[in-house]
């Protein structure tokens, strides 16, 4: 099973060049049943990554481009009166896909953002009084632009917390970019991608994650990280209990990816920047994007053993 998973990651890496670490984290996020926020400039391969992930994992894929005029109904779906039957018929929105790419989420109004985020949180959608479950698995990859240009609505902390990980892809390395420029277009590559995992396999893998052992030594390490983030003056606010849980869950998925049945501190450290970066804020930094420095501090100063 793990071999299959490795093969899947390899296939994605074949399409998304030079982003092994990010791809791995994205897969870990999927395995841990979390959602992913990618913060990057346009054209860095966010869409390619999402699409490739969907294809390789055998998930149905929908993309929602968030704009300022996007309405919640455009995401969730609407009921339309059907003249033939004389009844309202529900037309499910793009959210009813297994992998949803919510592109440039910070362009939409808070109202529309909330519609997506609430659906993510609850795993179901309530429209006009009736509740409809979302597909299983359900994986949202949201993207946002880092530079808050005019007309954007930055996600508040409370909403950021709903994403298990926040990644940024960054510019590719010169070698990777050279390959990119020399190689076949991504679109063609994408079409050739074959699903590596099926639903059942993915479900099995997702079920394996909580079973990964986290002994007291690791739990203590996570607690130390949480406490350090709460007690240090340079943190405006520390890691919430939900954040600590997320960290452990992500570390478990990471351990599983590494083929281990138990978590070691290095797993926690590997996922720490992605999981914690968007959950803490520096005291002196009003803009809220200085999480990286704090994460580095945590990695350096919190005793791992």
């Amino acid at each position: 099973m793990l071999d299959t998973l490795e093969k899947a990651i390899a296939s994605i890496n074949h399409v998304v060049l030079g982003k092994e670490q990010q791809v791995r984290l994205a897969v870990a996020c999927l395995l841990a049943r979390g959602h992913l926020l990618i913060e990057d400039l346009p054209g860095m391969g966010k869409t390619t990554l999402s699409h490739a992930l969907a294809k390789v994992m055998g998930l149905s894929f929908q993309r929602i481009q968030f704009t300022s005029d996007l309405l919640p109904g455009d995401i969730l779906g609407t009921s339309v009166f059907d003249k033939n039957s004389g009844q309202f018929v529900f037309h499910p929105g793009p959210i009813f896909a297994e992998l949803v790419l919510a592109d440039e989420i910070n362009r939409a109004t808070p109202k529309s953002q909330s519609a997506l985020l609430e659906a993510m949180e609850e795993g179901q959608v309530t429209i006009e009084g009736s509740t409809r479950p979302l597909p299983e698995p359900f994986f949202v990859i949201a993207t946002q632009n880092p530079v808050s240009s005019s007309g954007t609505f930055a996600l508040p902390e409370s909403q950021l917390d709903r994403f298990l990980m926040r990644l940024s892809l960054g510019y590719p390395s010169p070698a990777a970019e050279k390959n990119l420029l020399m190689g076949v277009t991504r679109r063609e590559l994408m079409q050739n991608l074959q699903p590596v995992l099926n639903h059942a396999q993915l479900a099995t893998l997702q079920a394996e994650v909580p079973k990964v052992q986290a002994r007291e030594a690791v739990i203590d390490y996570v607690l130390r990280i949480a406490e350090a983030s709460r007690a240090q003056p340079q943190f405006a606010y520390g890691l919430s209990p939900r954040g600590a849980l997320a960290l452990l869950a992500a570390a478990k998925a990471w351990a599983l990816l590494a083929g281990r049945a138990y978590v070691i501190p290095e797993d926690v450290q590997s996922v720490l920047p992605a999981v914690v970066g968007h959950r803490v804020r520096q005291q002196a930094d009003a803009s809220g994007h200085g999480g990286a420095a704090l994460v580095q501090w945590l990695l350096r100063e919190v005793p791992a053993l």
Binding site: E266, E301, V302, L305
Partner: peptide
């Protein structure tokens, strides 16, 4: 010397 934030494996 092991660093504070260094795990056993690393």
């Amino acid at each position: 010397q092991r660093q504070t934030g260094e795990g056993a494996r690393r």
